[in-house]
Structure formats: structure tokens, C-alpha cells
């Protein structure tokens, strides 16, 4: 019995089956976040985040809407409460504040009824922070439908009727991704899309002016806020990515030499 097997054998009583290695990875990520946050708190330098053109373009998109006197359409995606929605709502907070400062109408459409009051509160607070609480219109934060394609049809109608100059779709998208992005494109919107669904990202890439691919969506709040504490978690995320990259290289070399990497897969599945 090697050391790893011995460690696993000792812990099967405490951990749920096949969860030991997952637990170790979670602990490593929490520890990395903790260390990076401590560095940020102490004012020590942390690596900067690379430039993300899609996020840089948000100001430009809202500015364009202001110049054209047209509204901005924003949607935090199709998912219910989860990482993608939280990322979408964090970006909404930023977008709403800029829209309030520029005095530009912001239309927010949400699919999930439980998301509506949260989105309304975020936009209201952003208008308050921008010093323009009078400009906040609760009717612009719209719940349209819980049904996927009813939502799509409703947003298509909003884009056709109200002709926004910017269409921001930041969240998790499914089959409606291309329909909405094409409708925005036909309406002449500057479009920024973000998605983690690998089966739909390519639709955003072809139909939107800027696309946030996968993890870029989750870096949005840290990137836009420029808060070192939030940036620190993105750095920790990159450190984890390097760790997984090393594991992939070990697995590839192992499989090349031994003919398969079953032993490594078995170890990681404990």
C-alpha cells in the first residue's frame, strides 16, 4: 500500500465515498484564497489581471447608447441562483451605475421570478449611489416569463420595439443565445455576450462584438471593481488552474509511458 492509498484508507470513515480528493482540492483552493487575501490586506503586491476587451467595452457600449439617445438592454442570463447569475448581477451593478451617471435608460429583463426583486434592488441601489435616485424607473426592470422561449420571444419584441443601442447578455445561456444575439445584431446594437455553456459560446462569438468566454465571466466583478480583495480570488483561481494544468501534464506523460493513466484516475476518484 503506497502513501496515497494509506491516506485514503484512513479517511474513508470520515469522508463520503469518492469525495476525499475533492475535499483536498477544496481545502487547497480555500487556503490559496486565504493566502492571497492576506497579501491583499497587507498591501503587498498581487499579480494583475490581464486586460479583458469585453469588459473594457462596457463603458463604450453605454456611452454609445447615451450619444444615440437609445436605451441599454441588459440580461443576467437564464440560470437561477448560481455562480453565473451572481457574476451577471455583479456586472449589472456596474452597468446600472454607469447608465445612471450617463442618464441612459437601462432595461433589464430577467427570466426567473425570484431574480426580479434582486435585480430591481441592485439597479435601485446603483442609481442611489450615482446620486440619481429620481431617474430609477422600476418598470424598466422586467420579469417576462419563466418559460425559455417565451422569455426569448418577449426579449425579441423588446429589442425590436425599443431598439436599444447596446445589448449586454452576461450570464448563462442556452439555445436562445443565437436568437437574441442575432436580433440584437439586426437592431444595430453593440453587443457584449458572456457564457460558460460550451455548446453556445460560438454563437456569441459570431454574433456579438465582444464575448467573455467561460471563466472571464466570473472575473468580471473583480475586474470592474478593481478591488484587490476580489482580484485576489481571481489570482487564486489562476493558481488552481496551473495546478490542474500540471495534473493534466502528469496524466498525459503517465498515459504515454504506461499505456494508460488508470492508476492516476483511480487515485483522483477516491
Amino acid at each position: 500500500m503506497n502513501m496515497a492509498q494509506a491516506l485514503v484508507a484512513q479517511t474513508t470513515g470520515i469522508f463520503a465515498p469518492e469525495m476525499t480528493v475533492d475535499f483536498i482540492f477544496v481545502v487547497i483552493l480555500f487556503a490559496t484564497v486565504f493566502v492571497v487575501l492576506q497579501r491583499a490586506r497587507a498591501g503587498l503586491s498581487i499579480p494583475p489581471i490581464r486586460k479583458i476587451p469585453g469588459l473594457e467595452a462596457i463603458d463604450e457600449a453605454i456611452g454609445r447608447s447615451t450619444e444615440m439617445g437609445k436605451p441599454v438592454h441588459y440580461s443576467p442570463g437564464m440560470s437561477s441562483f448560481g455562480p453565473e447569475l451572481y457574476a451577471g448581477l455583479a456586472t449589472l451593478s456596474y452597468v446600472a451605475k454607469i447608465a445612471a451617471q450617463y442618464d441612459t435608460k437601462l432595461i433589464v429583463t430577467v427570466r426567473r421570478p425570484q431574480v426580479h426583486p434582486v435585480a430591481a434592488e441592485i439597479v435601485k441601489q446603483a442609481y442611489l449611489e450615482a446620486g440619481r435616485p429620481d431617474a430609477y424607473n422600476p418598470d424598466d426592470i422586467r420579469y417576462v416569463s419563466d418559460w425559455q422561449f417565451s422569455y426569448t420571444a418577449a426579449v425579441l419584441g423588446i429589442i425590436q420595439r425599443e431598439k436599444p443601442a447596446a445589448n449586454l447578455m452576461i450570464g448563462y445561456w442556452m439555445a436562445e443565445a443565437l436568437v437574441l444575439a442575432e436580433a440584437g445584431s439586426e437592431a444595430g446594437c453593440i453587443q457584449i455576450g458572456a457564457n460558460t455553456n460550451v455548446f453556445q459560446i460560438h454563437f456569441f462569438i459570431v454574433a456579438c462584438d465582444y464575448t467573455l468566454i467561460g471563466e472571464e465571466l466570473f472575473a468580471a466583478s473583480a475586474y470592474l471593481s478593481k478591488d484587490p480583495m476580489l482580484t485576489g480570488t481571481v489570482v487564486a483561481q489562476d493558481i488552481m488552474k496551473i495546478l490542474f494544468g500540471i495534473l493534466i501534464i502528469i496524466g498525459t506523460v503517465w498515459a504515454t509511458i504506461a499505456g494508460n493513466a488508470d492508476a492516476l484516475i483511480e487515485l483522483l476518484s477516491r
Binding site: 451572481y86 448581477l89 434582486v118 460558460t196 467561460g214 472575473a219 480570488t233
Partner: peptide
């Protein structure tokens, strides 16, 4: 990348670093 990103985003929410969803602004 997206899975690790979702994981890190969840940690931000759990630790209260990311709180825009509470309507508390930036």
C-alpha cells in the same frame, strides 16, 4: 476554466466578498 472560475466565484459569495446581489452596491 469555467468550473474553477465558478468555484472561485462561489467562494467570493460565501465569504461575503461579492455582495452586489444583496443590493448593497459596489
Amino acid at each position: 476554466g469555467a468550473s474553477i472560475g465558478a468555484f472561485a466565484a462561489s467562494i467570493r459569495v460565501i465569504l461575503g466578498l461579492e455582495r452586489s446581489w444583496t443590493g448593497s452596491g459596489s
